[in-house]
Nucleic acid binder design. Structure first.
Length: 489
RNA sequence: GCGGCCGUCGUCUAGCCUGGAAGGACACUGGCCUUCCGAGCCAGUGAUCCCGGGUUCAAAUCCCGGCGGCCGCACCA
């Protein structure tokens, strides 16, 4: 299979079988970067989130919230997004080309433009060095900042507010009340699944880069002096991480214990959460060898991060960042404390500390793409979607061997008994082989066929998607069989 | 946002250069067949030809603008 064609196959399957589709697609003015999930896509997403809840939220006793998507301007003044979530731009007065101003100055003069440089500073540099449009030589004009947040006007007065560019700000602004009411001590984590919004200049590649997207974020609050006093980490010390630290160009397969000992990871707390997130993706069906935790150097890190590891998965499109694991230090609670005047310190062993934050910020849509691409296999030019059974949108198909009585009634009866507990479909249309193929394509892990023998001895044929092996299961054992087969491994 | 290529049934595409009734394959639906791995035969549904404007007796086709897609630049979960 060609490298590009894997992406095309996923998109084609998604459109044809209802996983996802471009939003507003019947209108010509549909802007890029917005996608709708269809029935199978929603089901897959829900199962993915179920797995996330189980393997991260429940496993680590996190508290889950669901915050508003529109937040006040002050939130983003405090978080730094109003000032820092921007690109400085300028336009050519002649050919209308738009430039990243800081990049243009650096390219023309070799002078490094610091993040904090004002537009006025940059305008001066442009004048001093006589920088003009790189393409036509025209004069540069319209110096401005392009902020990637969507601004919204609230109420009749059109009060300035913003769609959140990351879900985690909801966690930080709710932190104080949750801490006061939920009786937790440091360290503990707050988690959230929800939408975030970024006005990307050029969204592209389907689910990989959207303007409206789902994140599953976890913010771990901890005392920075105690990041190594972390007993929970004992359970993962022997687990092997796939690390690529700064300056390395290959992946080290190394136990958490050794990574800590050699100083590759800054603390037990960080090692523990990196282990949890890697284990999560392994359970989501991504093979270990396609996962890496790559450490970002200063230039690559977000403006709020002091230490950053990206969990990346290798696909036909290269390594894709699925989770940003950032040490945000006291950036967020400190920022909100300063602007709101609300003291954010908490008591920890008799000492007042401002909690630091380590986050696991997961892109859900991207993750689903990687799972789909990884699961997609071509056999005799037919798609077989080998999803882990516990992520399958449809868990079993109930099929009468022949589309006539008494097979149809028997199959319908079994379908009805199963659908109370499982997500199953009934299908009598087309030859049996055609139906097997139809459900292989959307990742149904087992097909249940009602055949001649069913009528004699109350057993059914169970046919496995990945191996096409068939076995006979008694009707009364079917529930237990399915529960077992759909269990998280 | 820029540059290159591109946009036709659900999907893949023919037609565009050289203007003149939108055709095929797969999928889907129904019928015959009565089946354990996309069987065969017959019939059928399904396309504002991305959108808008222009040229023309006539536009899927030529021209202009917009929107979208892919690749590259940049940015990012």
């Amino acid at each position: 299979m060609g490298e590009r064609s894997r992406y095309d196959l996923v998109v084609r399957l998604a459109l044809e079988r209802g996983f996802f589709m471009p939003s507003s697609e019947i209108y010509g003015d549909a802007p890029a970067g917005f996608w709708d999930y269809g029935p199978l896509g929603v089901a897959l997403k829900n199962r993915f989130i179920e797995l996330w809840r189980r393997e991260l939220v429940k496993r680590d006793d996190m508290l889950e919230i669901d915050g508003a998507q529109i937040l006040s301007k002050s939130v983003f003044r405090a978080s730094g997004h109003l000032e820092s979530f921007v690109d400085p731009i300028a336009k050519c007065s002649k050919c209308k080309a738009i430039y990243r101003l800081d990049k243009l100055i650096e390219e023309k003069t070799g002078i490094h433009v610091p993040e904090r440089a004002s537009l006025e500073d940059m305008r001066k540099l442009v004048e001093e060095h006589g920088i003009r449009c790189g393409r036509c030589g025209g004069e540069l004009t319209d110096f401005s900042h392009f902020n990637m947040m969507f601004r919204v006007g609230v109420g009749v007065a059109g009060l300035d507010a913003y769609l959140r560019p990351e879900t985690c700000q909801s966690i930080f602004i709710d932190f104080l009340r949750i801490y006061k009411t939920m009786r937790r001590k440091l360290p503990f984590a707050i988690a959230q699944v929800g939408k975030s919004f970024r006005n990307e200049i050029s969204p592209r590649q389907g689910l990989l880069r959207m303007r409206e997207f789902y994140q599953a974020e976890i913010e771990v609050f901890f005392n920075p002096k105690k990041a190594n006093d972390f007993a929970k980490a004992d359970s993962i010390l022997d687990y092997r991480l796939r690390l690529q630290p700064i300056g390395e160009d290959s992946i080290k397969d190394i136990s958490c214990r050794d990574a800590l000992k050699s100083g590759l990871i800054s603390s037990k707390l960080v090692a523990y959460y990196l282990a949890l997130i890697q284990q999560f993706y392994e359970k989501a069906g991504i093979p270990r060898e396609k996962i890496r935790l790559r450490e970002l150097d200063e230039d690559e890190r977000a403006f709020y991060a002091t230490e950053a590891w990206d969990l990346e998965v290798e696909t036909s499109l290269g390594w894709i960042e699925l989770v940003a694991c950032n040490n945000r230090g006291e950036h967020d609670l400190g920022g909100h404390e300063k602007l709101s005047g609300q003291e954010m310190t908490v008591l920890d062993d008799g000492e007042r500390v401002l909690p630091n934050v380590f986050e696991l910020s997961m892109g859900i849509d991207r993750s689903l793409y990687c799972i789909l691409e990884n699961s997609l296999h071509l056999v005799d030019n037919r798609i077989i979607l080998k999803l882990p059974p516990h992520l399958a949108p449809i868990q079993a198909a109930v099929l009468p061997l022949l589309s006539r009585e008494p097979f149809t009634s028997e199959a319908m009866r079994i379908y009805r008994s199963l659908k109370q507990e499982f997500d199953v479909v009934y299908d009598a249309s087309g030859s049996i082989g055609r139906r097997y193929a139809r459900y292989d394509e959307v990742g149904v892990p087992v097909d249940i066929t009602i055949d001649h023998q069913t009528l004699e001895d109350k057993t059914v044929t169970v046919r496995f998607r990945d191996s096409t092996i068939q076995l006979r299961v008694g009707e009364s054992d079917l529930m237990n069989f399915l529960r077992d087969h759909l269990k998280i491994g």
